[in-house]
Nucleic acid binder design. Structure first.
Lengths: 192, 192
DNA sequence: CCCACACGTTTAGAATTATTGACGATGCTG
DNA sequence: CAGCATCGTCAATAATTCTAAACGTGTGGG
């Protein structure tokens, strides 16, 4: 076969699924390709369902997001979904062993907001090259002391303290204390 | 790259994962290949991690088991796993829209027993070409009236009734009533 | 207006995966 | 033990995917 491979149900529509995930994380095809170590053309073809990627390619691409294969296939894009989630149901997005991020809810389509529960181990540091998408973001510290740098300002935030800034301003999260920092954050709609 | 692709951690070791799943379901490479519409050579190469299958190939293969991509990547093979499972945590194995099977537990390695919760809608029928593996199986009916044929014997089983037979005897499950049949079944270790 | 830049798309060719058909090993049966 | 069947594996070839380098579009500045 060569012409068939096109639109299937939805759960198996890898292309659309990848495109949605990519857009939710505010990445362009080229940016994701760079992070993943593949070419932008490959991502374009996959998103159009003109090819069916190998597992190794798909894994490389998802590592650039980052998202596990299991989560990729498990994510639910249906508009009406569960309202309540237990702690264990949060989708994990691991950047760095010292930093864990868990997304609230598995529903992903038509999101207006992305909410994360983030945990920073002592010494964890995002670096400041994390411009990301162009929305806004805010958060509240739940535990520990967070060192937050936004533009030229730097502050120590203790439990109950919060922040709010435009995501295109360079920013950096650090845990310079000896106990873990936990915070709840939200990002406004990444692009689309 | 050409030589690297070999053994990785485990969660991403598609070959071993596929092999385990195939063996748990008591299928040979050739039998699975036939069901899936691929060649046995392809399955051999994948299980040895000598190639990384395309999603379309992997999906075809899993359809022959049958198992969804999401479940395939979600299955947990670690020997020590949870003991308790809620209804929603059972892994679904859908053969037929009229028949649902949910496997108890996600742990899969070193299983001595496979337990399923099966639901047959009115009219559902497995046909009798389901010889499957060579162990034994038994079950208890929870709701509805099950028509069970084993070899030359046929019986109507009502809630509380049960069965036990060698799986290599031809057998057939039917729901000839107007209400759904629910039963809990167990199979002894499929081959390996 | 035109240039520079970033976006997704496309195409030819390189790289990888799937098929075909054969092989050795094992087990069963007469 | 030979004959036969089935298992997993392998090599050569066919088919598909991935890369590299273009293209066309749209947008913002100067």
């Amino acid at each position: 076969m060569s012409a068939a491979l096109q639109s299937e149900g939805s759960s198996e529509d890898i292309g659309t699924r990848l495109k949605l995930v990519r857009q939710i994380f505010g990445l362009t095809q080229r940016e994701l390709a760079r992070r993943a170590g593949v070419t932008n053309g490959a991502i374009s073809l996959i998103e159009q369902n003109r090819v069916s990627p190998s597992i190794s390619s798909l894994k490389k691409i998802l590592d650039g997001i980052p998202l596990s294969l299991a989560d990729f296939f498990t994510l639910d894009f249906s508009p009406s979904e569960n309202v309540f989630f237990t702690a264990g149901e949060l989708t994990e997005i691991s950047y760095d062993p010292a930093i864990t991020m868990r997304m609230v809810g598995r529903r992903v389509k038509d999101r207006a907001l992305q909410m994360l529960k983030e945990t920073y181990q002592p010494g964890a540091d995002t670096g400041d090259a994390m411009l990301r998408h162009g929305g806004e973001e805010c958060g509240v510290v739940i535990a520990g002391t967070l060192t937050l740098t936004v533009g030229v300002q730097e502050r120590l935030l203790n439990p109950g303290d919060a922040y709010y800034f435009r995501s295109d301003i360079p920013h950096r999260f650090r845990n310079m204390s000896s106990e873990a920092v936990v915070l709840i954050s939200a990002n406004s709609p990444p692009s689309f």
